[in-house]
Design a protein around this nucleic acid. Structure first.
Lengths: 189, 189
DNA sequence: CTGAATTTTCAGTATATTCTGAAATTACAG
DNA sequence: CTGTAATTTCAGAATATACTGAAAATTCAG
């Protein structure tokens, strides 16, 4: 469908369309975002319409969704009515936004549901067991959320350093282990 | 639709059905899994059919999917033709399987696509820029994958200790910072 | 203000996904 | 083996999601 996109850029867009559809976002919106991420200059709705070969109205709705995810920024040019859209220039910023939004939309409501079910008094053994599983689940999700929140506080530069250092994560966890006085004696591979 | 499920268990099942549908898994399969997770004893297909009020064939297909995700284990009882299904008893095992499977199904293919596009020689400035974004993206995904893989190596008990210690993750990251000689001077809140 | 350029909305259509019942297949107790 | 209890398959129906074009609403240059 796309018109003047190079094969390389097309492949990328198609792949992330498919990926998007595996997450909440739908295929077309995923493609729109992929296009925006790859383009240096902000694009207007018509640019997207043409590049992806989809209807103008579909683009309008897609952009609305991307904006609600805070993944896309709207810009105006002086003396121009037209609106231009762009994705953050920093990939880590994008990832942080994605994580944050999914937390708000999925994790938080889940934790809230679990808490509500946990304050009820179990009516029988079956419910007592069920509540135990829910409790474990709540604990786990809360902890993983904490971790990701800590990681999200790193800025792109810090993350870059971490990356360059290779997989020293093992070392950090070992350190953590020592801090915790872990019983299991297993080195990092 | 469900018959003899208590309201508490119903709520849980409904919520995780919705959640499942936001991920690759569909609503009904999500409900089936929620039911299995909450039940102490393994269930047979007919139990699920009855509890959720869906067709027997739907249950059969759903179970097939859950098995392909390795989220559910099949068991036989001596002298019984019937098959019984159960979810792991440990929530962390479940989470690890989910993470692992999503990595295989989504992350790995994405990294592979990115690598293929990165070995091409950019035909023009536009492609050169696009490749740069792809490179950053590849780096980031690879690093985050490494982190999660390290975390996945922890067993349930280690994770439990981590949890009980509260959010000491900040401290570890600070430690890491010092190790890296971070420039930014910001304490853990 | 005005009106042309632009964006948004939405009802209807197209597409994709999920679900079902009936038929085919499989597995195993006897 | 055989018969039956169980599971699986699959074509078609039901449902849900995505997409479009036309019409309405909005915005701002002049």
């Amino acid at each position: 469908m796309p018109e003047k996109l190079t094969p390389m850029i097309q492949s990328f867009i198609l792949h992330f369309g498919e990926m998007g559809s595996r997450w909440g976002i739908n295929r077309t919106v995923g493609q729109m975002y992929a296009l925006l991420v790859l383009s240096k200059e902000p694009l207007c709705a018509d640019d997207i319409t043409e590049a992806l070969g989809i209807s103008r109205s579909n683009v309008s709705m897609g952009l609305k969704e991307l904006i609600s995810w805070e993944l896309v920024k709207l810009q105006h040019r002086p003396g121009e009515r037209k609106e231009f859209y762009s994705a953050p220039g920093d990939v880590w910023d994008i990832a942080k936004t994605l994580i944050e939004q999914r937390r708000k939309r999925e994790i938080d409501p889940t934790l809230s549901t679990l808490r509500n079910l946990l304050i009820e008094t179990p009516a029988n053994d079956e419910e007592a067991y069920a509540q135990q599983r829910m409790r474990e689940m709540h604990e786990l999700i809360e902890m993983l959320t904490l971790w990701t929140q800590e990681i999200q506080r790193l800025d792109s530069a810090q993350l870059g350093k971490l990356l360059k250092l290779g997989n020293s994560i093992g070392k950090v966890l070992d350190m953590k282990d020592r801090l915790l006085g872990s019983s299991k004696k297993e080195s990092t591979k």
